[in-house]
Design a protein around this nucleic acid. Structure first.
Length: 650
RNA sequence: GCCGACGUAGCUCAGAUGGCAGAGCAACUGAUUCGUAAUCAGUAGGUCUCCGGUUCAAUUCCGGACGUCGGCUCCA
């Protein structure tokens, strides 16, 4: 009799099985053939494992099938292997690098050259690869796992001529790994942590999405690689649903809605700088006014500083050395030298401003708010819509405070940011970035700075991701990310601690002890930039803004022209209160005008006929079609103002 | 900046192997004055992004520039 092991299932059941049985065999014998067939991978004592893993000790076992989202990640990793296999079958000599699962799908980076030059995959080749990959799925090749020594792994990949894999193996060995795991399906082998599904057939269906350039190790001085993006689903139906959803999401794209709703334009003569229409400007101004009120009501002062500066400033700030490539330089017409630059950030000008006066500890914290225009010379290939532009304005502020004031300042800021995002319904993800290897300041200082940020996040019960080593060289920071309609993440808000700038600019305050001390600076923004924030809001609301943000808040439509005079009176009363109202007096049918108001996503349409004129009423209709029925104008006003006023700023 | 795709009317898109350029919507004109999602008729609109080259002939083929899009990198 062989030894037995006791396996505990998620529901608490315990089952005995012969020691050394595979997970799959155990499931088949002790749970059921159906689950065995559906299984993709397992967790043994919480650790991910292949179904072929043997059970050598008592363990807790959990089986994952297509019903678990985790299983899709595993099969997408399978899919990456399959695509790499397909590429190497079709294009011998192509080298493989890495192929991770990403949020939506996976990618695989290849190195391929022709005549010494990088050879990108053409759309036709992608089709071939996709076809071949799905053939590999149909072939139902089992994935097999094996362990080899580091030496054998190096030999294996050297023999195959896979120099990138060899490099990765060396890296892993340098980190202390003794053995490596290999995964093979058919003749194709890659080394990989796993787990993988039982066979290629489990992957379902692979769809390749795009190809693009990427650099080995994300370093543009290294080899140019060819990246193929793809996604897989357990069945065609799920793939089709995903494609459809993607099409829906693209209808919310701010670039598309910006055109359809006539919010902004771009012109080749000023790439990366928006032309805002009167409608786009209305949104911009509403956000600007709201942020101004929020700032002024929360202890900030608003200041304005120049846009153009002599390079002397950038030499002090360090931008001339580290950021010059991103700055627009301006030639002085006398000296013919590029002695001036448009400001890419507000901080240096605020530091100069701080220095205009001698400050007492009683002045602190001192909070300067600014909405000035900034210019950054972004790489041409990086521009896109409103999310990445060359000219923009931040809802910027710099807080000058004593070190002991940092925790409360950070907490106040994060609280304010949370209120702003909540008011527009945005959900965000906070990221705390801590000390990088290259940094200034003592460890003690960093300990305190990081603790201050952490405390603020925890006091607000905010979940956050920790990004060790991602902070700026002068201090740690918290970034706030929001996703756009196609799932790309954008940084909006940020708060950064800065111990460096006060040194560089020799900023001081006089303390209680009558001696000079260094303040600390907090850089912070909530919207991030108006441009990017508006882009995110357009997508978030799919263009149907709440009344307070909508470019046109009310459209007044008459049943016949004889009611126009009354309609104008209604409009005037609303305009006098500061609202954005239009009367559609074009010679179109009423139905057509209503249709256009809906297409324009105007929050309220007021229909005026003889009955309304007679009774001093309006007949409001909401965007989307809800008919509120005729009511006295005063009653509408009350209802409307609740939604059309800026959100609270206290 | 790098890799790839793309650039036809204000917008969305057709089009031909290299031989007079097409639709819908929008615009304009006229008629229509209508009770909650699109009234009818007509008119106008184009150096087919730009600059070179090949050709009897280029919007179409080739090269370059600019821009847009998807990535890389960076960041708000």
């Amino acid at each position: 009799m062989g030894a037995t092991v006791t396996i505990t299932l998620p529901n608490g059941d315990k089952k005995d099985a012969p020691k050394g049985i595979s997970v799959l065999e155990f499931v088949k014998q002790s749970i059921g053939a159906g689950l065995a067939k559906a299984a993709v991978f397992a967790r043994v004592n919480g650790a991910e494992a292949d179904l072929s893993r043997t059970l050598d000790d008592d363990a807790a076992l959990q089986i994952f099938t297509a019903k678990n989202p985790e299983a899709l990640e595993v099969t997408r990793h399978d899919a990456a292997h399959i695509v790499a296999d397909a590429v190497q079958r079709l294009f011998p000599g192509t080298q493989v690098t890495i192929g991770p699962v990403i949020e939506e799908g996976f990618y695989y980076d290849f190195y391929r050259e022709k005549d010494g030059k990088p050879a990108p995959f053409t759309p036709a080749e992608l089709e071939q690869i996709e076809k071949k990959a799905n053939e590999i799925i149909a072939a139902d090749l089992p994935f097999t796992r094996s362990e080899v020594s580091a030496d054998d792994a190096v030999k294996l990949f050297e023999k195959k001529g896979e120099k990138f894999k060899v490099e990765i193996v060396h890296d892993i060995v340098a980190k202390g790994a003794k053995t490596l795991t290999l995964y093979a399906h058919g003749d194709w082998v890659d080394f990989c942590l796993g787990p993988h599904g039982p066979s290629t057939a489990k992957v379902g269906v692979i769809k390749l999405l795009s190809s693009s350039g990427a650099y080995w190790r994300a370093d543009h001085t290294k080899e140019q690689l060819q990246r193929i993006y793809g996604i897989s689903f357990f069945d065609k139906k799920a793939l089709e649903a995903w494609l459809k959803q993607r099409e829906e999401a693209s209808k919310r794209d701010h670039r598309r809605l910006g055109r359809e709703l006539d919010l902004f334009h771009f012109h080749p003569f000023s790439p990366g700088a928006a032309f805002w229409t009167e409608k786009g400007t209305a949104i911009y101004q509403a956000l600007s006014n709201w942020m101004r009120s929020l700032a002024l009501n929360n202890g900030y002062v608003e200041i304005k500083t120049p846009l153009l500066y002599n390079k002397g400033l950038w030499e002090i700030s360090g931008h001339w050395g580290k950021y010059k490539e991103n700055m627009f330089l301006v030639e002085d017409s006398d000296t013919k030298e590029h002695d001036f630059s448009l400001k890419p950030m507000n901080c240096p000008s605020h530091h100069l401003f701080y220095g205009f006066k001698k400050h007492s500890y009683r002045d602190l914290p001192l909070r300067y708010h600014t909405q000035d225009v900034l210019h950054r010379n972004e790489a041409a290939g990086a521009l896109g819509g409103l999310t990445r532009v060359r000219q923009f304005a931040q809802d910027d502020a710099h807080i000058y405070c004593r070190e002991d004031q940092i925790p409360s300042e950070v907490a106040k800021f994060v609280g304010l940011l949370d209120r702003v995002y909540a008011a527009v319904g945005l959900t965000y993800r906070a990221k705390l970035s801590t000390r990088p290897p290259q940094r200034i300041g003592t460890d003690d200082l960093w300990d305190r700075a990081e603790a201050a940020l952490k405390t603020a996040l925890e006091s607000l019960k905010l979940e956050y991701d920790l990004k060790p080593g991602d902070g700026a060289f002068y201090g740690p920071k918290i970034d706030f990310d929001v996703s756009d309609s196609i799932g790309r993440k954008w940084q909006l808000g940020t708060v950064q601690l800065d111990y460096n700038a006060p040194e560089r600019f020799d900023l001081t305050y006089v303390g209680e002890d009558n001696k000079e001390h260094r303040p600390v600076v907090l850089h912070r923004a909530i919207y991030g930039s108006f441009e990017r924030f508006i882009a995110i809001l357009i997508e978030h609301f799919a263009g149907a803004f709440p009344a307070w943000l909508a470019p046109v808040q009310v459209t007044v439509i008459c049943v016949a022209d004889r009611q126009l005079e009354y309609a104008q009176k209604i409009r005037q009363q609303l305009v006098d209160k500061g609202y954005r109202v239009e009367v559609d007096d074009r010679g179109l049918s009423m139905q057509k005008k209503i249709a256009e108001a809906q297409v324009g996503k105007v929050p309220f349409t007021l229909v005026i006929g003889d009955r309304e004129v007679e009774n001093n009423q309006v007949a409001p209709r909401r965007y989307g079609g809800e008919d509120l029925k005729a009511m006295p104008f005063e009653q509408f006003l009350e209802l409307f103002e609740k939604e059309a006023k800026l959100p609270p700023s206290h």
